[in-house]
Structure formats: structure tokens, C-alpha cells
């Protein structure tokens, strides 16, 4: 028999059932190409035994992984046959083919994503950043934005009397669309009053989800900014936010459908890439 195991080698071992129950193996392995499954395998991923190890075969048009799934079994690349665009920022009409230029970095925060650097293919090489699927198993522990913020605010409480020690991720505001990417520390006596932490220490780690209630959008914190990501998972040059919750001083002036437009140009994007590097 074959087992589903956390260990990729165990998943390709031939196991024999003993008469009195239990299983044992003599170290024989299933031949290359035998379907296998490890507990780490995600649903829908194809895994096969290769040299006695259960290996994941992944759809990757850039041939960067060791075991590549047959293209016939992969979703069609909708970027095929499209023209190359000069800027690294996504346009609605044109899409760029990206090639990864770094590994997938994940800050072990959930909800959140992995981020990698990418380069465009073609004559006008541009760099950008792209969302990527992180390896959750690389994290000792996953933190929520609340836990991360409270860790920062707990440190500040030792020095600043007025703080409760709890921190939060708060909603964007017209005057500050990037506010969900900054750590806000709670006042000790007034529970709805918060103070923002200045500087890089006050930024949520890159990849922290900042889409909040706008579930149809992909938005993540990068260098203290809340960037929206498009269909090719790179930042869009212009994004529109609907603010579900406004700060108290603005509530009388705006209704719940207030929309704000944030823009990101290539120079700002390059500065972000430089900071991430």
C-alpha cells in the first residue's frame, strides 16, 4: 500500500500491512511517475514519485521550478500574444510578460501575501513587484495585523504613558489612503483613540493585506503604502478606493461612498523596489 505522509519520501515507499495490524516498509519505493500525495500538497497540485520522493509538479511558463507540469494540463496563459508595454506599471489595455527576479518573500502575516521582484521581458526591461504564493511552512508562526501592531505598541507603552499597549490596523481616510499600512496604537483611557507610529517601524510588513472590506480588490502594504494589484498581480498605476469608514472629523462631510484615487508612477515604484532590495 501507499501512504499519504508529511514526509515526501514516506509517501513514495511501498508499505506492507502486517497480519497483526500496523504497517512496515522494507525501503522499496514506487517507480518514477507514480501519483503520490503529501500532507503539504495543496488541493489540485499534481505530485509524482521521482527517485523515491514525492515531488510537486507546478505550472510554470518560465521554467524556473525543478518539476514542471505539462503545459496541456495548465491554465492557458492569457498574456500570450499580447504586446509588450514600456512601463512597469500595468495598463488596462496592455499586459507585460514578467520574469521573476527574486524568491517569494513572505513576512508571515495573515491576511497577507508573498512579494517577489520581477523584470519585464523584451527590449525595454522594467522592474516591478508581483504577488506570489508564499511557502507558509517557512513561518514558525503566522501573526495577524493586530498581533503585529500590538507587539510594536507594547514596546512603545514602556516609554509613552498614554498608550494601552494594544495596536490595530485602521481604515483608510481621504487624507490618508495609506493609513491601513501604518501601525496605530490605542490610547490608554479612550479605546477609540489611536496614534500612528512614525517611520519605518510604523509600517506594516510588506505583503500585509490592506484591502479591508473592499474584497473585490487586491491591495497590500508595500513600504508603508497601500498598493492595489491588478490581474497580472503587479501594482496598478491608479487605484480607486471606496471608503467604508471615515475618521470621525470627516464623517459629517462625506457619505459612506466617498471615493479616492491614489496614483503610483514608475519613479515611485522604482524607489519602492530599491527599498525592498
Amino acid at each position: 500500500m501507499q501512504k499519504v505522509s508529511a514526509d515526501p519520501e514516506e509517501a513514495c515507499l511501498v508499505w506492507c500491512q502486517k497480519r497483526n495490524g500496523g504497517t512496515k516498509s522494507r525501503g522499496w519505493t514506487f517507480p518514477d511517475g507514480t501519483v503520490c500525495q503529501t500532507r503539504r500538497s495543496r488541493y489540485g497540485k499534481s505530485s509524482y514519485c521521482i527517485n523515491g520522493r514525492c515531488e510537486d509538479f507546478i505550472c510554470d511558463s518560465y521554467n524556473e521550478v525543478a518539476f514542471i507540469q505539462m503545459s496541456e494540463l495548465c491554465p492557458a496563459d492569457r498574456n500570450d500574444n499580447e504586446v509588450t508595454w514600456r512601463t512597469g506599471l500595468r495598463s488596462r489595455q496592455n499586459t507585460i510578460k514578467w520574469k521573476s527576479a527574486s524568491g517569494c518573500h513572505f513576512n508571515c502575516i495573515s491576511p497577507g501575501t508573498g512579494i517577489r521582484l520581477v523584470m519585464s521581458k523584451g527590449k525595454y526591461a522594467k522592474s516591478s513587484i508581483q504577488l506570489c504564493q508564499p511557502d507558509q511552512f517557512g513561518c514558525g508562526r503566522i501573526k495577524s495585523p493586530f498581533q503585529h501592531a500590538s507587539m510594536i505598541c507594547g514596546k512603545y507603552k514602556e516609554r509613552v504613558r498614554r498608550l494601552s499597549g494594544l495596536g490595530m490596523q485602521i481604515s483608510p481616510a481621504v487624507e490618508d489612503p495609506d493609513r491601513p499600512c501604518r501601525v496605530a496604537c490605542q490610547d490608554e483611557n479612550i479605546s477609540h483613540r489611536f496614534y500612528l507610529v512614525n517611520g519605518e517601524e510604523g509600517w506594516f510588513p510588506f505583503g500585509t493585506d490592506c484591502s479591508r472590506s473592499t474584497s473585490d480588490k487586491k491591495a497590500y502594504c508595500i513600504s508603508g503604502k497601500c498598493l492595489e494589484f491588478g490581474s497580472d498581480d503587479t501594482p496598478v498605476s491608479e487605484s480607486e478606493f471606496t471608503l467604508p469608514l471615515l475618521s470621525r472629523n470627516k464623517r459629517s462631510l462625506h457619505n459612506n461612498n466617498t471615493k479616492i484615487i491614489t496614483k503610483l508612477n514608475q519613479q515611485q515604484l522604482e524607489q519602492i523596489i530599491h527599498e525592498l532590495n
Binding site: I170, H192, R193, Y195, S247
Partner: peptide
């Protein structure tokens, strides 16, 4: 550093 001069109120 923490910005104590510009408190934010949330509901």
C-alpha cells in the same frame, strides 16, 4: 517615534 499630536478616532 509616535505621533501623539494627531490622534485618530475610529468607531
Amino acid at each position: 517615534d509616535i505621533d501623539l499630536n494627531n490622534p485618530i478616532h475610529v468607531d
